[in-house]
Amino acid sequence: MSRWMTTILFLVGSAILTHWVPFSDFFRNVDTMVHELGHAVATMVLSGEVLYIQLYANHSGVTYSYIESGWRTIPLGLAGYVTASAFAAFLFRQYGKGKLGVGFVAMSLLAVVSLAFFVNNSFGVLWLIGFIVVNGVAMLVPFPFLRKFYYLLVAFICLEESVMGPINLIYMSVLDPTRAGDASGLSRSTGIPALAWAILFLIVSLWCARSAIYSFMGKGRSRQAGRPRWESQA
């Protein structure tokens, strides 16, 4: 089976199975949080000013900021979806290395930074507090299988959301290009159709998803283990 087919099957299976897990919707805002933080960090790197971030119960979010018009709006527009896709791949990479603690700390740290510096609406603040508490409990629970289950649940939901976001963006780009979120903003800045940007986001997300799935399946470890070792003797 090809790598791409394996990736697609895992994504479909994840989308089906995670919806059966009670309270799984709670964790879908992790992807939103990372997406909006991507915009916020890009704004600061590009010498802009972040006003605040808002997270909503429908798993959407928005980053309000000031930035000089021109080329800076392009990396700013790209940052959200690319960061979310890369973060999902990062979580699986840490799983593949057996370093769940690094992934747990990364999730908690991003939530703390969001709460302390950026998010200001009621739902967003309450969700972040809840996530920090739940994540902390899961990280310290004395049952390894529960820690692993929780970690993979969040990781797979992040992965699923990172791919579904661009798919929804493609749909909106066809239906109403002016309402296609970041793709619409990039279209206004560059003159390139929103659909083209949405497709680019999907390509990036699928590429990261493929890397994530193969980290989960342990392909990186198996290749390393099977690599011949060169030994020299004096």
Rank of each mutant, 00 (worst) to 15 (best):
M1I: 13
M1K: 12
R3M: 12
W4A: 14
M5H: 07
I8K: 05
G13D: 13
S14F: 11
W20S: 12
V21E: 07
P22C: 07
S24L: 13
R28E: 08
R28D: 04
N29H: 02
D31K: 03
M33Y: 04
M33K: 00
V34F: 00
H35R: 15
H35T: 12
E36V: 14
L37Q: 11
L37P: 04
H39S: 12
V41I: 15
T43F: 15
V45M: 15
L46G: 07
G48H: 10
G48M: 15
G48K: 13
V50A: 15
V50Y: 14
Y52R: 15
Q54H: 09
Q54N: 11
Y56T: 08
Y56M: 11
A57M: 13
H59A: 01
G61W: 02
V62S: 12
V62R: 11
Y64T: 10
Y66P: 10
G70M: 11
W71F: 14
W71H: 09
I74F: 11
P75K: 14
T83G: 07
A84Y: 00
A84E: 00
F87I: 00
A88L: 02
A88V: 02
A89P: 03
A89N: 04
L91D: 04
R93P: 01
R93D: 05
R93L: 09
K99P: 03
G101I: 13
G101H: 10
G103D: 03
A106E: 03
M107W: 02
M107K: 00
L110R: 00
A111F: 01
V113M: 11
S114F: 05
L115M: 06
L115N: 02
F117V: 07
F118C: 04
V119A: 03
S122A: 09
S122E: 03
G124Q: 08
V125A: 02
V125W: 05
L128Y: 01
G130A: 02
G130M: 00
F131V: 04
F131Y: 04
V134W: 00
N135I: 01
P144C: 06
L146Q: 10
K148E: 13
F149C: 02
Y151Q: 05
L152C: 13
V154R: 04
A155P: 02
C158N: 15
E160V: 01
S162D: 02
V163R: 01
G165R: 03
P166W: 07
I170E: 03
I170L: 09
I170A: 06
Y171T: 09
M172H: 07
S173W: 07
L175C: 08
P177T: 08
P177Y: 06
R179F: 11
A183Q: 09
S187W: 10
R188I: 13
R188T: 14
R188W: 13
T190W: 07
T190C: 09
I192H: 09
A194Q: 05
L195H: 08
L195R: 08
L195A: 12
A196M: 11
A196K: 02
A196W: 06
A196F: 09
W197M: 11
W197N: 07
F201Y: 07
I203L: 14
V204R: 03
W207D: 12
I213N: 01
I213S: 04
Y214F: 14
M217C: 07
M217F: 06
G218K: 06
R223Y: 12
A225S: 10
A225Q: 13
W230M: 14
S232R: 00
A234E: 02
